[in-house]
């Protein structure tokens, strides 16, 4: 599983910039960023270096920040590449809370999913031939 950093933001001008600056000041480099918004608040989800330490630094400064485990899967960049993987998750009764794509090239795409996980999802995906993305493929720790 990948450790995703989530930061709670008010839906106000300048908040995303302030959050990014705080992460930069915490010495962490961001590799991906997805912002989900509602009418009055948003959450910024990111994969960055040293996510746990970064979350602690942000919390100490008064931000609401949390680290959540998310699933990273590399799927072939062909029609149905993603559908096949999601169908498999459905078959094994795993629910997807949200998901997004972070990289794309001619051969493959990396997709991130927040799933209901009993701890076996990654192993079962690998067994079925899917390629799991490891943390060190995206960010560094320590």
């Amino acid at each position: 599983m990948l450790a995703q950093l989530t930061v709670f933001l008010e839906n106000e001008k300048g908040r995303l910039a302030a959050a990014c600056r705080a992460i930069s000041d915490a010495g962490s480099n961001m590799h991906t960023l997805v912002v989900a918004d509602t009418a009055d608040f948003g959450v910024a989800r990111m994969l960055c270096d040293n996510p746990e330490a970064c979350a602690e630094t942000l919390k100490a400064q008064g931000w609401r920040a949390a680290v959540s485990p998310v699933l990273g899967v590399r799927v072939p960049n062909v029609p149905g590449g993603l559908a096949q993987m999601l169908e498999f998750l459905d078959e094994i009764d795993v629910n997807v809370e949200y998901g997004y794509c972070i990289t794309l090239n001619d051969q493959s795409a990396v997709d991130i999913f927040k799933v209901s996980d009993d701890g076996t999802v990654e192993a079962r995906l690998e067994q079925a031939g899917f390629e799991i993305v490891a943390p060190e493929d995206i960010y560094t720790i320590g």
Partner: peptide, 16 residues
């Protein structure tokens, strides 16, 4: 209002 620090803010459904 603010959530307490332990609240799982990653889950928008829970916040809503």
């Amino acid at each position: 209002v603010e959530t307490v620090p332990e609240f799982p803010i990653d889950e928008i459904r829970k916040l809503e």
